[in-house]
């Protein structure tokens, strides 16, 4: 029996787009025909259900499963827009320490038997919530934005991931504004990669459609033509092992040639 892969989406800093990335990468993988389960581990501050538009269908949550109030399968919410997309929501009324890392690992291991991909949405910070989210993961995606503070926190997180044996996490740089990078007012991608020195999984431009999608409960990736949607689809394809060139955010040729080459190497 083949076992699926659990991927944790983390960042350290809050507000850089972990939940958005989880929702869109999960949805994109489902669009590509994979069986996907998204797990929200942000107990007390759950968001993933809202972004996915599944909030009103929650009956049981992750803490209920951990405490034995229901079976794991009962807590899973099926997203009816897709064949195989499920969500395990977090509890909103409890705290991070309502679940132990061991318990979460148990759940993720169980999910891995039924799904190709288990996408774990990690809370901000490096405390219990982070340890919970990381416990069951086989792979990690680190999300950062082109800001010094976000890069600093991503670096810290990569250090902690390496310590918990999640070696070689992959990097997603979110919310890039091409004109600001060009004018030198935003950290450029080369610089971020050279500091963090991990493989780049993808870059996502700052896109108003993301906000629109999050508010209407429809992940951007369902809409095929927006720049962010294309970026997330590319990321999903790279997770499946395809070689997809990095998006060119500006018409300037050769701007990301270097990284493209790097990605080819890092795969």
């Amino acid at each position: 029996m083949t076992v699926g892969e659990a991927i944790v989406v983390t960042s350290g800093k809050g507000g850089v787009g972990k939940t958005t990335t989880s929702a869109n990468v999960g949805t994109a993988l489902a669009l590509l025909g994979k069986k996907v389960c998204m797990v929200d581990t942000d107990i007390g501050l759950r968001n993933l259900d809202v972004v996915m538009g599944l909030e009103n269908r929650i009956i049981y949550d992750l803490v209920d499963v951990a405490e034995g109030n229901c079976r794991l399968a009962q807590a899973l919410i099926k997203d009816k827009r897709f064949d195989h997309l499920y969500l395990l929501p977090a509890a909103q009324t409890r705290d991070k320490d309502a679940v132990s890392p061991e318990k979460l690992k148990e759940m993720v291991d169980e999910l891995k038997r039924d799904f190709d991909y288990v996408i774990i949405d990690c809370p901000a910070g490096i405390e219990q919530g982070f340890r919970n989210a990381v416990a069951g993961a086989d792979q990690a995606i680190v999300v950062t934005t082109p800001e010094n503070s976000a890069v600093r926190d991503a670096d810290r997180i990569i250090g902690l991931l390496e310590k918990s044996d999640l070696r070689q996490p992959k990097l997603v740089i979110n919310r890039i504004r091409p004109h600001m990078v060009k004018s030198g007012n935003m950290l450029d991608i080369d610089e971020i990669c050279s500091i963090l020195s991990i493989d780049l999984l993808g870059i996502v431009p700052d896109d108003e459609n993301i906000i629109k999608g999050a508010n209407s409960g429809e992940p951007t990736v369902m809409n095929p033509d927006t720049p962010a949607s294309i970026a997330y689809r590319n990321i999903a394809r790279r997770i499946l092992g395809d070689t997809v060139p990095l998006m060119v955010l500006e018409d300037k040729p050769g701007l990301f040639k270097k990284i493209r080459k790097w990605f080819g190497l890092g795969k």
Binding site: R152, D153, D155, R156, I158, G159, L160, E162, S197
Partner: peptide
């Protein structure tokens, strides 16, 4: 005497 060699990236917080 002798030089201790360490390999790897020393990241934020380490």
């Amino acid at each position: 005497s002798g030089l201790k060699v360490h390999t790897g990236v020393v990241r934020s917080g380490q």
